[in-house]
């Protein structure tokens, strides 16, 4: 389970933890505006101690994309 990741998403997007899936995206989470999407990446950077490139930031379309980029940075999400 990507518990830590989902907790951060739940907090930043103000949505229930249970409602978050890998497929969640701006159309399923209404508070996922472009700005909040950026706030989320910012929170992930400080919580997982990584730095996303601008290409990675632009590439994020859903939660699965975030997981992929975190894994590329060596983050173990225990999935």
């Amino acid at each position: 389970m990507s518990e830590k990741l989902f907790k951060i998403i739940s907090k930043v997007m103000n949505v229930n933890y249970e409602n978050i899936t890998d497929e969640s995206n701006p159309s399923t989470i209404p508070s996922w505006t472009s700005f909040n999407g950026y706030v989320l990446l910012y929170e992930l950077e400080s919580n997982f101690n990584v730095k996303f490139s601008i290409d990675e930031a632009m590439d994020v379309k859903n939660i699965a994309d975030i997981k992929r980029h975190l894994k590329n940075h060596g983050v173990n999400l225990n999935d």
Partner: peptide, 12 residues
């Protein structure tokens, strides 16, 4: 505090 905390708190 982080900005996201402020944004969340302000909604409440």
């Amino acid at each position: 505090e982080s900005l996201s905390k402020y944004i969340l708190d302000s909604e409440k």
